[in-house]
Amino acid sequence: MRLIKSFLIGSLLLASSACVNTQTTRQGAVGIERQQLMLLSSQEMTQGASQAYDAILKEAKEKKTLNTDAVMLGRIRTVAQRLIPQTAVFRQDAPAWDWQVNLIKSDQLNAWCMPGGKIAFYTGIIQKLALTDDEIAAIMGHEMAHALREHGRERASEAQLTQIGLTALQVFTGIQGPALDATAMALNVTLTLPNSRTHETEADRMGVELAARAGYNPYAAVNVWQKMSKMGNGGTPEILSTHPAPDNRIKDLQKVAKKVEGLYLKAKK
């Protein structure tokens, strides 16, 4: 038992130390400089995302919901073509990623970007919010930023570290069953949710900069969240949500948009 305890302590300390010097992106004009915990490799996440993305596209194709609107598909792919070169400001390797952009017919207000640059937009978010190209760029830039910062890999690493911690806690204290579940929930609320809000803020700021550098109005991100708020998507208290509260998010986006306004004006010349 003593050997097991020593191993668990060593594993936990070793895993924790992995975050000290990990910085996935450059700071950019918006100043993203947070160190990140990474226990898994980028290759693992990218390969897994590619397989998952292919499966989603296959299912959508079978349901005849994949890329059914040529005009809408053209719009999002045009936006992507302008945004992708701008990713170099944060990661030199990113423009050469295997970026893919597809449209799924669905009423959901959703869009996402998997590790490695696998993007999907749902028709619902474009139609229900009546998105302009500037607003599409704001959303797409946000989602691309998650991939650039490798937030998915960071979350997976946090989960792995939490599991190591729970195993160690169980060995040391004998806590099991419902009590261990409650402990896991406490760790999740304490560690995971604040990081998730941090991820959203980072993606907001980086997304605004990507859009501005591509010649899209950075204030469009503010418009998007004002529209979302009017639709009632954001009433969850900030302390219990993985997303910043709408009012706080809009205020931050306004500040960031002002900071990168010069980049937008330069790109528009």
Rank of each mutant, 00 (worst) to 15 (best):
T123N: 02
T123L: 08
G124C: 05
G124P: 02
I125S: 02
I125F: 08
I126A: 10
K128I: 04
A130L: 08
L131Q: 11
L131A: 02
L131G: 00
T132G: 07
T132I: 06
D134M: 00
I136H: 03
A138T: 03
A138N: 03
I139Y: 08
I139L: 09
I139T: 07
M140C: 10
E143N: 07
M144N: 12
M144F: 13
A145G: 06
A145D: 05
A145C: 10
A145Q: 05
A145I: 03
H146C: 13
H146S: 13
H146G: 11
A147H: 04
L148R: 08
L148G: 09
R149M: 15
E150D: 15
G152H: 11
R153H: 12
R153Q: 12
E154D: 09
R155Q: 15
A156V: 02
A156D: 11
E158L: 14
A159H: 13
Q160K: 14
Q160N: 05
T162M: 15
Q163M: 10
Q163L: 10
Q163F: 02
Q163C: 01
G165H: 02
G165F: 01
L166N: 04
A168N: 00
L169C: 00
L169D: 00
V171A: 06
V171S: 07
V171E: 13
F172T: 01
T173P: 00
G174Q: 13
Q176E: 15
G177K: 11
G177E: 07
P178E: 13
L180Q: 04
L180Y: 08
L180D: 02
D181C: 04
D181K: 13
T183Y: 03
A184F: 03
A184P: 05
A184N: 11
M185F: 13
L187N: 03
L187E: 07
L187T: 00
L187S: 07
N188E: 10
V189A: 13
T190A: 15
L191D: 12
T192F: 10
T192Y: 10
L193F: 11
L193S: 03
L193H: 00
P194D: 04
P194M: 01
N195D: 14
R197K: 04
R197W: 00
T198D: 14
T198N: 12
H199L: 03
E200M: 08
E202Q: 14
D204M: 00
D204S: 07
M206Y: 09
G207A: 10
V208Y: 02
V208D: 02
E209M: 05
E209W: 11
E209I: 10
A212K: 05
G215S: 01
Y216C: 10
Y216Q: 12
N217S: 12
N217H: 13
P218M: 09
P218R: 10
A220P: 01
V222Y: 02
N223V: 12
N223Y: 12
N223G: 06
V224W: 09
V224I: 11
W225M: 00
Q226F: 03
K227R: 05
K227C: 04
M228G: 07
M228D: 05
M228K: 06
S229W: 05
S229H: 06
S229Q: 13
S229A: 09
S229V: 06
S229I: 02
K230T: 14
M231K: 15
G232P: 12
G232R: 08
N233F: 15
G234R: 01
G234V: 07
G235M: 12
G235W: 05
